[in-house]
Nucleic acid binder design. Structure first.
Lengths: 194, 194
DNA sequence: GTCCACTCGCTTGTTTCGAGCAAGCTAAGT
DNA sequence: ACTTAGCTTGCTCGAAACAAGCGAGTGGAC
């Protein structure tokens, strides 16, 4: 059922996907999607939820017990891994993310919370990096987190609009390097990475 | 008419705005919006078009005949100015941008072209900066352009979802400074800016 | 073992509402 | 009087949402 919904979102976006199609593509009747999820919004909310769980799982698997800069790099790599293995998943997930940004307050608040959680995670890694002295003492974790998440969301957005032109992996690596150049503690970073 | 459409998009997003409401809010009949624009998609396309024109005008007014780093900074400032004066305008514009990313190929292609144009403009300023030796010779303009536009789009996206938390202006300045720290020619940049 | 009540997953009938089209109205210009 | 532009109204089609109901399977009472 959710698989069918995902396939249709990928093909036509949320707006042009009907609940009837979702049900019938999944091999059921026209009314099932309505009946199961109550409304179109809730179907998509459920989809987003499933994506988030899977994403979190993937990410924490690679980050493990790492902290600071190592954790940050691992999170970055987990994105790239997830992207290579499940490009469609990510694509659908972010189409949902972006297409709901203008919607009702309920939806927007959920989105805002997702964003905030993402920023918090990054800020935590940065704080740890500062404590571990791989990142400069003067750095403001929440600002860096905002920069990183902004870059990431914007990159995905442009990739959604034009997948052929945007080289996701190298762009992410480029940005990571540029960022570390600014916030990294010159002496320590090298020794950590090496 | 377009004013009414904008107001409704701001309030409910594209998805929950009906052509009937647009017409009636503008003081006309339920059918006028349909009649004028042919379809909902074309109404929004027209809105985006108007926004783009206004944006371009604002931007070129501040950039003027500047080039390189100066032009880049001017473009940056024009965004902030435009933002302060027309926050609603920008908001509606980007809701439209983001909500169409999953739509039909036609719409997506237009979006992709917008993004590409934006990247080209930035890359041009960077190239000029390299020629003027305010920016390091080793910098790849198109990569920097992708980083900048990604950051910008992602920042706007998070701001749309949660306007109270995201401090647009300072975030943009922060990022600008961090970027110049990486790509700027250390000696020249200072003399240029001062 | 049989029967009944209950539940769950699904379908089908129906209402409501929006998009889009077509036909027509009205008023202003010529 | 004729035309045209701008607007309205009537109508059709399709989608969402809801309600009612169907049927297979489960559990309990005797």
């Amino acid at each position: 059922m959710l698989e069918a919904a995902m396939a249709l979102v990928l093909e036509r976006g949320t707006h042009n996907t009907t609940l009837r199609e979702v049900g019938e593509l999944a091999g059921y009747s026209r009314g099932l999607a309505s009946n199961r999820f109550g409304s179109k919004d809730e179907l998509f909310a459920e989809l987003i939820h499933v994506f988030n769980e899977r994403w979190k799982k993937e990410s924490s698997a690679l980050v493990g017990s790492k902290t600071g800069l190592e954790a940050f790099d691992a999170a970055n790599d987990s994105i790239i891994d997830f992207m290579n293995d499940n490009s469609d998943y990510i694509r659908a997930m972010f189409i949902l993310y972006y297409e709901t940004v203008g919607s009702s307050t309920v939806m927007r608040d959920r989105l805002a919370e997702q964003h905030a959680a993402y920023r918090r995670a990054i800020a935590r890694y940065i704080s740890q990096g500062i404590a571990e002295q791989t990142i400069k003492q003067t750095v403001d974790p929440s600002r860096v987190a905002l920069q990183y998440t902004s870059f990431f969301f914007g990159l995905v957005y442009q990739w959604l609009a034009n997948p052929d032109v945007i080289e996701f992996e190298s762009a992410l690596h480029d940005f990571r390097d540029a960022m570390i150049q600014v916030i990294g503690e010159p002496d320590r970073v090298v020794s950590r990475i090496a």
